[in-house]
Amino acid sequence: MSSAHVDHTHGTLPHEPEKATHEGRNKILGFWLFLGGESVLFGTLFATFLALRNQTNEGPTAHELFNMGMTAAATFILLTSSLTSVFAIQAMHRHKLKQLVAWLGITVVLGLGFLGLEIYEFAEYVHKEHFGMTTSAFSSSFYTLVGFHGAHVLFGILWISLLIAQLFKKGLTVVTAPKIYVSAIYWHFIDVVWVFIFTVVYLLGKVG
């Protein structure tokens, strides 16, 4: 078996440290497979939403509800965070630990900003618009789809924060690199899901 746990010091670390070990490559492959399953998960949630999005049960409709300004801001923040996570991986490939940590930190902060806006949005719907989980089939499918995505963002924030802490303690090694790499794939994935949510839920809700 490969020598998974040899401590590479700076200089001996390969260009793509995430793919240096068999375990690392397995982890990346397994994670891509997992994202295949996640695609079906969100696909089913989207299908549910599309089937029920006009069933408003005399409650608020999408057109009345959505505030495009805030959603656009949230979209901009999340898309930018995907870019910063790309910068983090580029820093990792250059073996620049400080830059890597900094870009991951910015990614987390942007993720928190997105999540804050989403929580504010949900709270406003519930308290001002009386649009809760139980209001209509539309509301149930809206909160479940967008909420599932929000929970994924929250998990990503906690996960990347934990990895930043590990980078401080363990440094960049062939063990930590695959973790950083799969967390970045994950972050891109939830970003892509959001692009679909912005289109299917918000844009379509405003015009359709």
Binding site: L52, N57, S136, A137
Partner: peptide
């Protein structure tokens, strides 16, 4: 209300 006809 996913499967509740009365609520859509």
């Amino acid at each position: 209300n996913f499967f509740e006809v009365a609520a859509g």
